[in-house]
Amino acid sequence: MSSRDKPQILLEAHAVAKHFGGVKALHDVSLTIRRGEIYGLIGPNGAGKTTFFNCLTGLYKNESGHFIFDGVKLAADAPHKAAEAGIARTFQNIRLFGNMTAIENVMVGRHLRTHANVVGAIIRNRATMAEEAAITRRADELLHYVGIQDRAHDYAKHLSYGDQRRLEIARALATEPKLLALDEPAAGMNGTETEALRTLVEGICRDGVTVLLIEHDVKLVMGLCGRVAVLDYGEKICEDVPSVVQKDARVIEAYLGGSVA
């Protein structure tokens, strides 16, 4: 199937609901993400953004609703299947393998798209060694891609905050995703770092990966995203291009705080 024949819609969320006890974290959220766009998901703290992410990537099991990804219904409650289908994510509070080196972290990301089994690992046949070399090469390329190649052999936990964010993105990209879901990638970054992140995300999108972005930094979201959805108390209150979203009365009230624009 050539890229032209592919349907335009990459991800459809259909009335996804998730409750924690009596708290409705997500209330029938539906949205569609088009192939090749950068889609923003914003909302005040506790609006359900990360919960939506966790349902999408199979870490949580949603009570009702479902996701259609690239034409196929996603299995709920199976993170590795979501990853296999082509959804890679980063975490709001960075979750790297701290005691593994940067390059090893990215190599773990290659797990999904490689096949060496125990027998291959023990006898070290030619196919396994070739695959291992390819994993190392690809991991190295990805570290270059995100710009932290000179930290390749440092332990992930010794990397600076910004570099850890980049490493997490590299690890996610190693799984060859169709959709890269970034959970507050700019949190805690200074202006320069945020600017570099914007360039990186734009580059990733240009290289054919659709991006779903949760972000607090409204400026970044408005500048970067093609379309934006706003969550408030687990409900989607708006979904449109940034310029329209910014003027939406409900969004201003819920998110930007009453009369302050």
Binding site: H80, A83, E84, R95, H111, T114, A121, T128, A174, T175
Partner: peptide, 26 residues
């Protein structure tokens, strides 16, 4: 040999952070 293989790395990743390992498709 297992230690330095695709499987060995997956084990190590699980030991380090199981949730992240799952999200990586393991």
């Amino acid at each position: 040999r297992l230690q330095d293989s695709r499987i060995g790395r997956a084990w190590q990743a699980i030991r380090e952070d199981e949730v992240a390992a799952k999200a990586c498709g393991i």
